[in-house]
Design a protein around this nucleic acid. Structure first.
Lengths: 165, 165
DNA sequence: GTTGAAACAAAACATAA
DNA sequence: TTATGTTTTGTTTCAAC
């Protein structure tokens, strides 16, 4: 029996218990991850040393995966986005793992999902224009022996959730 | 004629020209947005003051939308993800805007896309378990008069792209 | 657009409570 | 967890290039 997840298995370490303070800290960091430790501690009403200790624990235990930045795709000359659902040939599932590793490094790929259901995965791509998307599909999907079918939907708007944790 | 995008229109300000230095700076920040200005300037081979000036410009012009953090959903007791595609009733398109605003504030909603194509949008939700997802669909989608149909796919794995800019 | 130097602020760490 | 002290490191401004 092969595992369900196609790429490197993740730790199944039980989720560390987060208290209300942790959640408020994560909420603040989600809004602005460059806030200084001091500013964070003030907003939380705790000592800077405590705040720092919390943050380190959150990083060490993997609750915080990384601090990152959201970039406007248009600024990078990537004004168009698409979602591409992909179905693999029945006999080609074992190729998903290597396929996944390759995809991750393709500049147009913003994120992708492995799915349970009719389609095997869904790729979110960010590109210059529709020709660029077509080229992506031809080069990285259609030409792949493992791919049975693809379906591309252009994205009118992409919204990130902003709810509290 | 109503606009295509259902939520607040975005600036159509032309993308500011980014040079190689800007792109390298963004790449570094994407890997770790809490790197100090000094460390960033060293990696780029420029003075700290120059690095700071670049970063401020990127923020001011909207190239950098926000500094944020990626949190492991499992740590929040949200161990399961799903993608839900939604088709609206033909006469209900005018409700998309208010629908969108509401969705953004629902804690389970990680992101969503407005689409051109057969489906009207696609919602990425993060939940405790499958019951939680079912409850989300019932409460926020099926019960909505504007929704004609939904289709839920569970996510086995969610991968973020890590290609250079 | 870039720089270095100076003044200021914060981080990191240890320690003791 | 906090408060405090010390040392090291980083931020920010600005005049000058």
């Amino acid at each position: 029996m092969t595992p369900v997840t196609p790429t490197a298995p993740k730790d199944l370490r039980p989720a560390p218990e987060l208290d209300d303070l942790d959640r408020r800290l994560l909420t603040l960091l989600r809004e602005n991850s460059r806030m200084t430790n001091q500013a964070l501690s003030e907003r939380l009403g705790i000592a800077p040393s405590t705040c720092l200790a919390r943050m380190k624990t959150l990083q060490r235990t993997g609750v915080i995966r990384r601090f990152t930045v959201e970039v406007d795709p248009r600024a990078l000359g990537r004004g168009i986005e698409a979602l591409i659902s992909v179905r693999l040939r029945a006999g080609a599932r074992h190729l998903m793992s290597s396929f996944s590793e390759g995809l991750k490094e393709v500049p147009e790929v913003s994120q992708f999902f492995f799915l349970a259901g009719a389609d095997d995965f869904l790729i979110h791509v960010v590109a210059r224009d529709t020709d660029h998307i077509r080229q992506f599909v031809l080069e990285h999907l259609s030409s792949n022996q493992a791919v049975a079918a693809t379906q591309t939907s252009l994205v009118f708007e992409h919204v990130h959730g902003s709810a509290e944790l």
